[in-house]
C-alpha cells in the first residue's frame, strides 16, 4: 500500500475560510530540498503558523486547540500555484486525509489524490453551510463516504454528492498507487505474456 486506504471518514474539521490558498503558503519553497517524503507536516503552512523566531502565531487556526480533525475545509481555489507534490505530502503528513473546497487547482487536486489525500469539491452554498456549522460548534462532525461519493454534516443531515474519477477512486479505496494496481493484475499480465508472439 502506498498510503492509508480511504473508505469512509468521520471527523471534525479545521476551518480555513481563506480563498486562493496557494502552494507557497502550504509549503514554502525553502523546504523543498528534503530527499524524503516524511517530516513535511512540521512545515505545513509554516509562515502562517510560526513567527520568525519559531514561536506559534496564536491567531492561526492550526494553533487554536478548539479546532482539530482529519478534514481541512478551505476557501475556493485551494492549492493554486506550483505543481509541488510536497504540498499534498505536507497536508497528509500533518494528519489530514481530506480537503474540502468549492474549487481546487488542477495540479494540486491530482497530486492530492495520488498521495491518498481526498479532495472533495462541493458547491459554494454547501461550503458555506459547513463553515457556518463549524462556527456554531467547533466539534461538528463531517462524514465523507468515498464509496457513496457523499459528504454529510452529521448534526444537520445536510449532504451533497461529489465527483471523483472512477480509476482514482478504486486506488484510494485500496491505498494503491498505479504500480500497486498493476501488481494486483499479475495473473492477467502473465496470461497476456504467455500468448504473445514476442
Amino acid at each position: 500500500m502506498a498510503y492509508d486506504k480511504f473508505t469512509t471518514l468521520i471527523s471534525s474539521a479545521v476551518p480555513m475560510p481563506i480563498e486562493n490558498v496557494d502552494t507557497d503558503q502550504i509549503i514554502p519553497a525553502r523546504f523543498l530540498k528534503a530527499t524524503e517524503r516524511e517530516g513535511f507536516g512540521d512545515n505545513l503552512f509554516r509562515d502562517w503558523r510560526y513567527n520568525k523566531d519559531d514561536s506559534p502565531k496564536p491567531d492561526f487556526v492550526l494553533n487554536n486547540p478548539i479546532y482539530h480533525g482529519k478534514i481541512l475545509v478551505g476557501g475556493k481555489n485551494f492549492g493554486s500555484g506550483s505543481s509541488r507534490e510536497h504540498a499534498a505530502w505536507a497536508l497528509y503528513d500533518y494528519g489530514f486525509r481530506c480537503v474540502v473546497s468549492s474549487f481546487f487547482a488542477d495540479i494540486f487536486k491530482n497530486n492530492a489524490i495520488n498521495v491518498g489525500l481526498l479532495p472533495v469539491t462541493v458547491t459554494a452554498e454547501f461550503l458555506d453551510k459547513i463553515f457556518q456549522a463549524i462556527e456554531k460548534d467547533a466539534e461538528t462532525q463531517l462524514e465523507v463516504s468515498l464509496i457513496d461519493q457523499m459528504i454529510t454534516i452529521l448534526a444537520t443531515g445536510d449532504q451533497e454528492s461529489f465527483e471523483i474519477n472512477g480509476y482514482k477512486k478504486h486506488n484510494l479505496l485500496n491505498g494503491y498507487d498505479d504500480i500497486d494496481y498493476l501488481r494486483a493484475m499479475k495473473e492477467e499480465i502473465g496470461a497476456f505474456a504467455e500468448q504473445s508472439m514476442y
Binding site: G166, Y167, M185, E188, A193, Y198
Partner: peptide, 16 residues
Amino acid sequence: VVRHINDGPDVLFIDR
C-alpha cells in the same frame, strides 16, 4: 491492451 480502465488510461503490455 491488457485492460482498458473505464474513466482512465489503457494498461499496455510492453514487449521490450
